[in-house]
Design a protein around this nucleic acid. Sequence first.
DNA 1: CTGCCTGAGTGACATAAGTTACTGCTCTAC
DNA 2: GTAGAGCAGTAACTTATGTCACTCAGGCAG
Lengths: 234, 234
Amino acid sequence: MTHERTDLATALGRAALLSNLTPAELKTLAARTVRKLFSAGELLFSEGEPCNGLHIIAQGKVRIFKTSMSGREQVLAVNVPGESIAELPVFDGGPFPASAAAIEDAEIAFISRRDFQAYCVEHPEVALKVLQVVGGRLRRLVGIIEELSFTTIRQRLIAALIKLAEKEGRTTARGIEFQLPATHQELAHQLGTVRELVSRNLMRLQAEGLLDVDARQILVKDLDGLKSQLETTS
Amino acid sequence: MTHERTDLATALGRAALLSNLTPAELKTLAARTVRKLFSAGELLFSEGEPCNGLHIIAQGKVRIFKTSMSGREQVLAVNVPGESIAELPVFDGGPFPASAAAIEDAEIAFISRRDFQAYCVEHPEVALKVLQVVGGRLRRLVGIIEELSFTTIRQRLIAALIKLAEKEGRTTARGIEFQLPATHQELAHQLGTVRELVSRNLMRLQAEGLLDVDARQILVKDLDGLKSQLETTS
DNA sequence: CTGCCTGAGTGACATAAGTTACTGCTCTAC
DNA sequence: GTAGAGCAGTAACTTATGTCACTCAGGCAG
């Protein structure tokens, strides 16, 4: 029990939302949080449900997404430990605008709406922090809209590959090498499309000599060539 | 001068963001605002510019939008008097994520970032209000993403028509009648597409007997029929 | 009255996107 | 080892989307 509380307090301290709180404050807050465990694939909550508290990720990755009637998915965000989920419904009182599921086994610190709101009133600077976090979220959403509205799947895929190459790639003699972080299916969800198109477009990029693809293993042979693909008038 | 200040104070009072402030408070705030006038079509600000204050609409309509390299536009929001624009960049300090232009001649109350932030620190409840407003904005963005990702232009158009019919339509013997609020071009921007597709889809709906179209004049003959079009598996 | 400008309707076309339906590969469980 | 599950590659096809290039009507300025 004590152990758990301590863990939660440190986990909370890592949360961007709650940085610059004193250890004592964290402890008080931790005493009011509930630890929740989710296994990979499990739903944290579904779109449309009422929101009764703030989720902070202590362990694991969480995917925020919308689902269409026909079963297609569009990922809105992937959140990692230290980030919070669904800050907004906590404040505006509305239902969740999207669903959330654990990508990996995950541990979540849950603070009830009432407690967190009370906390914000006592600590106005927390509300400003929340605004900052929400600002970043809003910017990402606008970015997604821009992509959906103006770019092809090919370009979105290229953009994703470039980001991965620059973040996770190892530079080798032949180029920049990395693994796709998930299945083609999951990547497709993040790009707002279907598995087949990811596969096809990867093959097409390979045929054009920009990449070598071996299932999830990617070798970028011409990063600048890839980047130049993003600047076409589309 | 006094007149102007008074006007601004009442205009501010109508703003959702600042409701439940006392007249005295409004007056103080109004003393710190600048009145800006824009004529139809004029840009308030452009995507990427630094944000140095909060805009509140006193008169006129304002369009928030993204532009692609090839010149296409995607409207993110249309804001009317009483609403605020770009609350978020004020808080997170980043640049504007999108551009804003006046649809009609517009009058804007402008409060500098510094002043408004100071105001929020003194009045924590205002920060919570801002969170609520931003929450609504975020929900709308998620809605746009859902539409772009899962629906066809036909369905988006139908949804827009239904909304207009229910909000502005006059019921006549032959059906619900209303005018499109803008040119096909503008409607296309709001749906994230081009003029031709709006025109074509309207004609197609007419051919199917759901509507009568005469340029901007619309007569909805079968509202339920329209609605049922939205429930297909797409 | 005439010519011009803007907005609207349309046909032809190229391409992107999504669906269906396979094949084949690689694990894991039995 | 074998069966089955899950992931990946692909071909054929349908539809949606966007572009180009017009035509046409109405309104406004000269």
